[in-house]
Amino acid sequence: MSRRLRITIDYDRCVGSGICILTAPGVFAYNAERQSTVTDPTAEPAERVLEAAQGCPQLAITVEDAETGERLFPPPGLG
């Protein structure tokens, strides 16, 4: 499945735990402030990107389907 994803990071929540970067390297990387930044949304399978978003202790990552706009994470009620 090659779904195009839109990945958004909430910088008021991101604390740079690095978990997304370790889960989906290539998609996420540290920026100069040691918060997470999206380098290439297509570098890993969508499942891996979702796993990275789910792993975030701060719920700082939102993942949507880039075409339909459907929110894939977090589900309603979680954040």
Partner: peptide, 18 residues
Amino acid sequence: PNPHVAFGHGIHVCLGAP
């Protein structure tokens, strides 16, 4: 927003925070 550091910040941010 409320970007407090009560749970720390960075790689050691509180594991049990959620």
